[in-house]
Amino acid sequence: MENIVQNLQTVPLNHYILFSTLIFSIGVIGVLIRRNMIIMMMSIELMLNAVNLLLAAFSVHHGDSSGQVFVFFIMALAAAEVAVGLAIIIMVYRNTKSVDIDALNKLRW
């Protein structure tokens, strides 16, 4: 256990940050340019996981476990979110026969 932590600490923090940023950006761009709701959900998950990764990395870096506690919180939250989100998408699909996000433009003006 001790070993793993030390091994992890040998990877510089910047790498984690860069990596997370990359994943996060992919997620943002995915949300922005894709119109399929399921893919958008997946992109959101990507963003959440990028943040999770970063939290974990900092937690190891500082040797403080509270960061990892947050990760678990977020994972639980993400699971709940996906459950609700997918349910909504299914309902939308049943009503509009589509998972295109632009089908949901009734709420305007």
């Binding site: 943002v28 922005l32 119109r35 996000i101 632009d102 433009n105 009734k106 305007r108 003006w109």
Partner: peptide, 17 residues
């Protein structure tokens, strides 16, 4: 001003980002 509320979620997201 309310015309900005176009109903397209992608537009809202874009503005947010």
């Amino acid at each position: 001003v309310r015309l900005l509320q176009s109903g397209y979620i992608t537009f809202y997201l874009f503005m947010m980002v």
